[in-house]
């Protein structure tokens, strides 16, 4: 099936792309939404502009849609982007990286239904610990580009998801109910290498922005 992937550049959308290819689907395009609203309910915002470099490394065209990020306007912008992808790339369906968010998944399901597209959520309800272990096993190199919950601090920014990280996040889950895969928006990620990339991305600049007591964002420049 010819598919378009809703793509933020974080671990979930990149892994959903990887799984789709494993199942024999053709990835015709990536669809990225640039939201001005950093608190967006629908889209992960950090590092989203770097998705163009990821797309180029995957040799897949990327369709960019900008949105002001007002709650329901975001959906209109998302619908427009998916419609454009359907017309331009003749996709039959859309893939998302949704794991637990019924809010996100049901809205995308409605848009796909309205546009006559098949909706795939290959990570839906996936066990979060197994998922992180799969990412490491499948040679995904992922860094944290944002942390937004207690007890995270600046030291977590830029860290790689590896075995040590998984052990520590499991402890935080037990102690502070932090979702292991960051599904509660506790942390956000950016994929710098994975089997889909023709070459690893090179992080050349880093700037950490403090947004609150336990809230930090990383601005990276990649080449």
């Amino acid at each position: 099936m010819k598919l378009g992937v809703l793509f933020s550049g974080g671990k979930d959308s990149v892994y959903a792309t990887y799984v789709s290819k494993k199942y024999g689907h053709e990835i015709e395009c990536l669809i990225s939404i640039f939201s001005k609203n950093k608190e967006s309910f629908m889209f992960h915002t950090p590092a989203v502009e770097k998705t163009k470099i990821q797309a180029s490394s995957m040799n897949v065209p990327i369709l960019i849609q900008r949105t002001d990020g007002k709650k329901e306007d975001e959906l209109t912008d998302l619908r427009d982007a998916i419609k454009k992808a359907k017309n331009k790339f003749k996709i039959d369906g859309v893939v998302t990286g949704a794991i637990k968010s019924v809010y996100q998944a049901s809205r995308i399901q409605r848009i796909c239904d309205e546009l006559g597209l098949v909706c795939f959520n290959p990570l839906w309800q996936k066990d979060e610990e197994i998922y992180l272990e799969e990412l490491v096993k499948n040679k995904f190199k992922i860094i944290l580009t944002g942390v937004f919950a207690f007890p995270f601090d600046e030291k977590w920014i830029g860290r790689e998801i590896d075995k040590k990280f998984i052990d520590e996040i499991k402890t935080l889950n037990k102690k502070y109910k932090i979702h292991v895969a960051g599904e509660g928006g506790e942390y956000e990620t950016f994929v710098v290498d994975c089997p889909l990339f023709s070459r690893p991305l090179n992080v050349v600049g880093k700037k950490i922005l403090k947004e609150g007591e336990n809230s930090f964002r990383l601005e990276v420049e990649v080449k």
Partner: peptide, 16 residues
């Protein structure tokens, strides 16, 4: 019908 949809509609049941 689609094998990949089993990840969404079958695996979660299997897990529980």
């Amino acid at each position: 019908k689609e094998k990949m949809h089993e990840l969404e509609f079958v695996r979660p049941i299997e897990k529980i």
